[in-house]
Design a protein around this nucleic acid. Structure first.
Lengths: 229, 229
DNA sequence: CGTGCGCTTGACTTTTTTCAATAAAGGTGG
DNA sequence: CCACCTTTATTGAAAAAAGTCAAGCGCACG
């Protein structure tokens, strides 16, 4: 039962008794998504939520002129599209695969009835929602109170925290996507990377590798205590 | 039993059986907050959450230079400060009373044990979190993809939806606070209001009253299909 | 009655975007 | 394996949007 093991490995379902894992396995649908394919659109009816198993997807908002703001890039094991399960019925954003991906889809009604019977699952799901709220408040803070160099510095520091201790970090998305995640455009991002390098804060190795040379400098930038010249 | 009635009137607790309302009444603490008083600060340990009963509070982020970004202004009956109950333990933002206010405080552990026993309460709380996520995604979208005139137009339309049908609407916060809610500064807000009035989109009546003269124009602004000259 | 705070307006600066051109990279099919 | 073509990234110059600094008005509150 490959499927049951996959479900059991999802943090959201940690602590569920085996029989309830089996219940989940009965209602779940595996979805395979090709790179570039849309998973859902803003305004679509949300009849359930997803958990990313492998690959990479982006959750984003879209302006009429085509500009995107990425809200979230789930890591494997993380749920997405869960808001309409609990309020509002429709997806508040778009989801598209950045790479060929695989996810599990949990239909709403079966999941809700499971929630009703299982307090541990309830608390896990609330923790997921609360963590995402926390990240969004940080995002709002960054967009509103920091300039682009500060946002970028904060992002580098964030990445370096969750990776190995070395000052080397690998961007797992393209610079276009990174710009969209930071609420700016590729040209601006490119210029700011160049300025950071010129000031000796970072060094770029290839296109997707960044080495942090001056962590304190980045922290000062992220906190607004310093500017790039 | 004034208190029980107040608790029963809170949407979050809708559908709770009387004995559980009594449980809540036993653990709840009434907090009276004076205008200008801090309720909690970012980083404080969150030992429970609040429900606003009367008055007005702002939930906001603070930049080192003192600039504020308001995240949320709960209406009476709405909970706030609930994120640390479910994840992370510390408040992600500041809360301060804009007017003399009264709120109920629910200690975390007692509330969590109640959640575990009550599926309806669970689903209500998840709906609260999911709705807030939805609002934050809209906020991120506005900050990133709209310019200030578009954000202001969207805000007016939002206010006019939840009030009476007339094109007249009353701002319930100062323009300084409104600027902070929209992610800008009072000077910019002032200029844009003047431009909107000059273009015949709105008319300002006194300092806190706005009359919408051209709803379609505001909608075009909010959708990015038009610009102020 | 004065002081202070909220609000407005002007002039200027800074930041970011836009438009355009070019260069580099990556994947596909021959 | 290479040539081609689309996507991704960089750089420059100009424009636009928003923020800063400063001054002044008016109303409310003590």
């Amino acid at each position: 039962m490959e499927l049951i093991n996959q479900i059991a490995a999802i943090p959201l379902f940690e602590g569920l008794p085996p029989d309830q894992l089996k219940d989940l396995a009965r209602i779940v649908v595996t979805k395979v998504i090709k790179r570039g394919q849309m998973i859902f659109s803003e305004g679509d009816e949300g009849t359930g939520f997803y958990v990313l198993i492998s690959g990479r997807v982006k959750i984003f908002k879209l302006a009429p002129d085509g500009k995107e703001q990425i809200l979230h890039i789930p890591v494997p094991g993380e749920p997405f599209g869960e808001v309409p399960v609990f309020a509002g019925e429709r997806f508040p954003a778009y989801a598209e695969a950045l790479e060929d991906s695989r996810s599990l889809f949990f239909p709403r009604s079966a999941f809700v009835s499971l929630v009703k019977r299982n307090p541990a699952l309830t608390l896990n799901m609330m923790a997921v929602l609360a963590r995402r709220l926390r990240r969004f408040t940080t995002m709002i803070e960054n967009l509103s109170l920091k300039e682009v160099p500060g946002r970028l510095a904060a992002h580098f520091l964030y990445l370096s925290e969750r990776k190995e201790g070395a000052g080397e970090l690998r961007l797992d998305i393209s610079k276009n996507q990174l710009a969209s995640l930071l609420g700016t455009i590729p040209e601006t991002l490119s210029r700011i990377l160049a300025r950071m390098a010129k000031e000796g804060l970072i060094e770029t190795v290839g296109q997707r590798q960044i080495r942090i040379l001056n962590r304190a400098g980045l922290e000062a930038l992220a906190e607004g205590g310093k500017r790039l010249s």
